[in-house]
Structure formats: C-alpha cells, structure tokens
Write a protein that binds this DNA or RNA. Sequence first.
DNA 1: TCAAAATAGTACGAACTTCGTAGTATTCAA
DNA 2: TTGAATACTACGAAGTTCGTACTATTTTGA
Lengths: 142, 142
Amino acid sequence: MTEPTHEQVDQLTRAFERFTRRFKVAESAAAADNALNALDAEALVFVGDNPGCGVGEVARYLNVAMTTMSSAVDRLTRRRLIERRRTEDDRRSLALTVTDKGRQAIDDHIAAYRELCRVMLRSLDPREQAELIRLTEKIAGS
Amino acid sequence: MTEPTHEQVDQLTRAFERFTRRFKVAESAAAADNALNALDAEALVFVGDNPGCGVGEVARYLNVAMTTMSSAVDRLTRRRLIERRRTEDDRRSLALTVTDKGRQAIDDHIAAYRELCRVMLRSLDPREQAELIRLTEKIAGS
DNA sequence: TCAAAATAGTACGAACTTCGTAGTATTCAA
DNA sequence: TTGAATACTACGAAGTTCGTACTATTTTGA
C-alpha cells in the first residue's frame, strides 16, 4: 500500500511498453492460420474450465454483449471445438462443452502461453525467477 | 539464462492469467466513448514520438498492412488528431504530425497507462516496487 | 537520357467482428 | 393462468483488416 514515487511509475511505464512490445511481436509471429481470435479463444478456455455453462455466463464473464457471445459460440461450434446441448432442467438454456478437438486447441493455446512465460523467466537468474512469480501473484491477487 | 522449472512456468502462467484479467477489466471500464481503438492509439503515439514520419513507417513498426495503416491514418486525420502533409524532398510520401488535440489525446492515453502502473506498484512495499521495476526492465531488455 | 522497376500512398471491395433490435421458446410469479 | 422475466438467436448496421489494383513520383541501369 506504499505510494510509489512519480519516478518509479515512470520507469515501470517505460519498461512495460518495451516489455509489451517485445512479447506482442513474438505472439503475432507465432499466430497460426487456423488461430482463433482473442474472444473465441477466451470463450473456449472458459467453457473448458466450466463445462455445462451457458452462453450468457460466458458473455458476462468476458464482458461482451450476449449477441456477441452467441456469434462466438456459433463460430466455435461450426469449427467443432465446442458442442451445444439443450439442458433438461431449463430448456431455454444451452450446456456448452468442449469437444476433443476443442480440448486439443486449448492445450495448444496454453502451451503457447506457457512458452511465453518460460521465455520471460529465462531472462532471470533463479532468485529473480522466484521473486517475479511472487510479485506477480501479489499484484494479481490484491 | 537459467532454465526455470516446469512448476515455476506453471505458477507464472496462472499468476499472469489473473493479472491480465484484473487489469483488462479495469481498462475496459475506463474506456471512454471517444476512445480510439488499439491500432489507432498506437499509431497516434508513434507519430507523436516520430514527427514527420510516413504512413509506411508506422505500418512497418506496428506490423500491419500498408492499407490498414492508411485507413487508420485516415480516421485519425478525420478526427483532427494528426495532419498529413506532402513533403518537399519526396512528393510521394506524407509527413505525419500530431495536432494539439492529438497531443492532448496522447497525454490522456499515457496518463491512463501510468495510472495502471501506479495501481500495480501500490500493491507492493517499497523494496518490492524497486525489484519489480528492475525485473521488468531486465526481461524487456534482453 | 530515358524507359523500366521500385516506392509511397489511396480507392475499393470482400470477409469478418461487435452489438442493438426484434423475435422465439421457456420458466417464474402472483 | 397470464404477464414478466430469462436464455438464446436472426438479422442488419457499423466498423476493421487486408488484398488487389490503381496513381504519382523517384530511382536505376543500359
């Protein structure tokens, strides 16, 4: 809760700009032809983590309009990455689940993300690696 | 250059997911109505840092097609954030500069980014703040 | 020197994404 | 039992990216 100095904020801002640029370039280079757009990828991961969830749940979680998520689910369904099924208890809603192909896509997605994290950590020595993890967790958690 | 453990990569991956989510939500909440899209904002900042640059330079820097940048420059020009002028020495190319209104928009953009960095730092105590800055610089730079 | 190639940029249209409006089907509530 | 609420989709408007084809200008090399 200690207020950082103006100078520190400035340093971190500049460092983050370079940081972001470095890994954005790496990411766009890795993007395959059959890659999903950002929303579809996030929706797919959410469905993987929450099997049986509905379209509205995903929309609320990702902060997009219901119709936008309906479109995304449609794209994912057409590509056979997820499946829609009417539920017994509420026949208005759909239960979304990932297919085997969808699970594979998620694994690939996570692998790419992990690789990015691995590259970051490799720039540091062991003590710093542990410290970066700790600090990131602290910031993310509070 | 020390290879991180599988477990460490995993920890950082999870921490970054929460980290990203936390600050993405904050960002989308702050997005005003007149906000620029990501590409236009980045192009505007680049022109601010490189007055007199051409459309192609911005396109190459941001890794987008020339026609895409042409559209972005068109939008920024229509909104009176930048100006296009033919140069004397090469009359094919345009010299881009930001207007006063564009400078103001850049300042606002940077202020929002700095605020994000400030919020991150505030979660940490003074020693950790300095350490986060150092580690970020180290990763960004290598 | 001068024609061909290269360069800087734009016009246009196709493909895609987001989202608001209006609709269907179903469930809940009084 | 009927009217409101809920889950979702169809459709169309507006916006973005990018490839192709174009204009204008500069560079190159025979």
